[in-house]
């Protein structure tokens, strides 16, 4: 397979970046996100979070549990500061 394939579109993180990070650090989805920026971009991980979880499950062996690996945090949509302060 092509290892330079992009997994996280927003931050342009490749399969290789994520796979090697999990392999080297034996880390969770959350730590992988912090280390690689996968899932940290504009879409909030809506597109790539399942891929990160899958790679972590495969390489680190963290099985799919009932807790969501990458916790959802507000805001779930990017918003300008003016909206946060009230229009």
């Amino acid at each position: 397979m092509r290892e330079d394939m992009i997994i996280c579109r927003c931050e342009e993180v490749t399969y290789k970046d994520i796979y090697q990070t999990v392999e080297h650090h034996q880390c969770s989805s959350r730590e992988t996100k912090l280390r690689t920026r996968a899932g940290m971009g504009y879409c909030g991980g809506r597109t790539c979070r399942t891929f990160v979880d899958q790679i972590v499950a495969e390489v680190y062996g963290e099985p799919s549990g009932d807790a969501i690996p990458l916790k959802y945090r507000p805001p779930v949509r990017p918003i300008p500061f003016k909206t946060m302060g009230g229009k």
Partner: peptide, 28 residues
């Protein structure tokens, strides 16, 4: 919301589904 804050005694979340992607070289 982007249009301000709404208040309610009860809340129903019927947000539906999102699509699963499949990463493929060149998919951006």
């Amino acid at each position: 919301t982007n249009e301000g804050i709404y208040r309610g005694k009860t809340l129903l979340v019927a947000a539906g589904a999102a699509e699963r992607s499949i990463p493929i070289p060149g998919w951006t």
